[in-house]
Amino acid sequence: MSQASLSIVPTGGAHAHSDDSGPRTTLGFWIYLMSDCLIFCVLFATFGVLMANTAGGPSGRELFELPFVLGETALLLVSSFTFGLGMLAMQVGRSGRLVFWLGATLLLGAAFVGMEIHEFAKLVHDGAGPGTSAFLSAYFVLVGVHGLHVFCGLLWIALMIHQVTRFGLDAITRRRLACLSLFWHFLDLVWICVFTFVYLREFA
């Protein structure tokens, strides 16, 4: 336990038990992200294997609406950009501006999750739920796991907004934001593969 980390937050116990240095933590977090990447990789492989097995049910071509997917894509891409602007604000120590950009990212991400829930509800309502065919099972699992990650990212962003306002920009909040930044940009990377191979490929 280093003296420095104790002196950062004399009031909070939660912040006082870390003596890790930043680069080592971000490297460890990167290794976690890569293992998460393998989870998505396996889900993509499953989807690729099962995508033709519609079992007489509707195919993606009849179900998906590309303008809607373009909207989801835009929300996630802009949220990646606003998060980047937040990290730049963090770099120069402007915590007010950082919280503003984190808030913007939170709203955009929440809108994305909202659109996805709406899409899923519509599919289930139209009789194209996950039980209809192997294609739809694989689709719901792959896109659902990504959506779940985005939802967890939203919780994390909300937590970091709280921590930055409460504790300020100390070494620990900076380190956590660096990890969150990797996580959020990573989710956008996964979404690029989702809209290409799940949605657009159906119409190619």
Partner: peptide
């Protein structure tokens, strides 16, 4: 253990610069 530098501009993480994010976004 090296003491953590508080409130010093972070030299340990790379977060790029504005032009990088604008180019990437564009």
């Amino acid at each position: 253990m090296k003491p953590i530098q508080l409130h010093a501009p972070s030299r340990t993480f790379h977060h790029g610069n504005l032009s990088g994010y604008v180019i990437g976004f564009g």
